[in-house]
Nucleic acid binder design. Sequence first.
RNA 1: UGGGGUGUGGCCAAGUGGUUAAGGCAGCGGGUUUUGAUCCCGCCAUUCGUAGGUUCGAAUCCUACCACCCCAGCCA
Length: 548
Amino acid sequence: MSEKPTNFIRTKIADQIKQGQISEIVTRFPPEPNGYLHVGHAKSICLNFGLAEEFGGRCNLRFDDTNPEKESQEYIDAIENDVRWLGFEWSNLCHTADYFEQLFDWALHLIRNGDAYVDEQSAEAMRLNRGTLTEPGVDSPYRDRSPEENEALFCKMRDGELPEGAAVLRAKISMSAPNVNLRDPALYRIRHIAHPRAGDQWCIYPTYDYAHGQSDAIEGITHSLCTLEFEDHRPLYEWLLKKLPVPSRPKQTEFSRLELEGTVTSKRKLNALVQAGHVSGWDDPRMPTIAGMRRRGYSPEGIRLFCERIGVTRKPNTIELQILEGSVRDDLEGRAHKAMVVLDPLKLVVTNWDQAPLELTVPWHPKRPEFGSRTMSFGRELYIDRSDFALDPPEGFFRLIPGGSVRLKYGFIVDFDDVVIGDDGQVSEVHVRYDPATRSGEDQSGRKVKGTIHWVHAESACAVDVHLYDRLFTVADPGSYDDPASVINPESLIVGQAWAEPSLHTRMPEAFFQFERVGFFKQDPACEADRMIYNRSVTLKDAWAKKQ
RNA sequence: UGGGGUGUGGCCAAGUGGUUAAGGCAGCGGGUUUUGAUCCCGCCAUUCGUAGGUUCGAAUCCUACCACCCCAGCCA
């Protein structure tokens, strides 16, 4: 295989180690538990955990849980599950909430040094006084309170004596900074609301800007990796680290976030789709969430391969869906069991077959003998896919046609005999004669046919449901719509019935399958034993369809 | 019109002054094939946003310009 592609962060770390500037790296993946993880998070997870792994360092999973309004235990559990499923194990499981006491003490430190003050302006007034992108802001009338007064007020905030919105703690930096993030950013706000982890211990909560860098410092993070939109926050990140007696000095490095063609990677918008019932949940197989991709039948290795292929840079980028699908296919090709399933059945009658059904031994994977084999019965009545027969074949069609022959994979070559047209004018049956000398594995006839098609034995086949997924949206950039629901693809899910060889069900439910010549499928975890559901993860490449 | 970023083939992406500008995906052509899949082979940027300049030599240095992205939450 090819070696791992490099990127600017990896190169920098390798360099720092070589120069002896650092001996160990510590990274962290810091999701806010306000939704499920999506493919964009997968990129970050692979980066953070991957780097730590590669350089023999550590990586923490840290819940950036500073805003109890949006966070919940359901999300916390789902995130842990998703990270593990992707194949990573954290060094420490951390919660910003566990640092609340320390963060509070440090806030006092800022206040006592005159670096923070309690502002009692309304949110509206603060917004107005912040100025604009081109004009400086105006100092708050509360900006020059004494440290003593600030400390007393801040303690009142903590003690619950002030209502929500009555006051915030602000860093005292500059209201005229050209970088608006430095115009006395809020550090603490009042929220009389319980926290999923801290319970009702607190009614003031730190903001991301105040909590993040300090949390990094507490954990001894060396490389704090985040996306580009936080670049303008870096001066603030550094300002706080410099003002506070923190135990270490982490460095923030930004990279560009993943943009995936045809998908939405905004937790807010994904949540809206879930809430409105446009999808069955966060784990709907059409969702770009890790849970959705898992349920759809993507493998962790396939997703990791994808993350490796897309690289890490600071450039704006939009990744084509083909790269994700191609990565998944490439991984699944080697690990999926190959089964025969007919999605759109057409009865095939082998007119010269008068014997009992024949049991054929068929390998689960032609190149992987260790996968073992199963038996398939072959008899007089079979189903083939309707698309594998053409009364009036187009140029280049080499499946079954009047007067023609095809091989039934792992079975025999059959020669066209006759066709039966139903009342609806459609072909209802195709009659063929099999050539006994052409049995797979012992064919000495010397016959060669152009096409090989899949089939199932009508008598023993099992009916299963198949869920055929297509892209969730009709446009390439649903994320740029305020309401992506307005461009939902009404055909993003097609439920069909199929006939499967019975041994499909003898495999474990976790198994990945390739339905030969059709696509990769995975059993849906929610289906019942008497009505199996297989989700189509991704189709096979199809040069014939493309030519059409 | 403020600040911070980014521009290398259809999509990603190496490359940081010196052979014919890596590689992946997609595409195209061919071979193998009992999956029109997989696999294998070959092709696919005289050119690095544009225009100047420095240099024996530039995607890499300088200047100007252009385009696009992010920032005015008590979200992260």
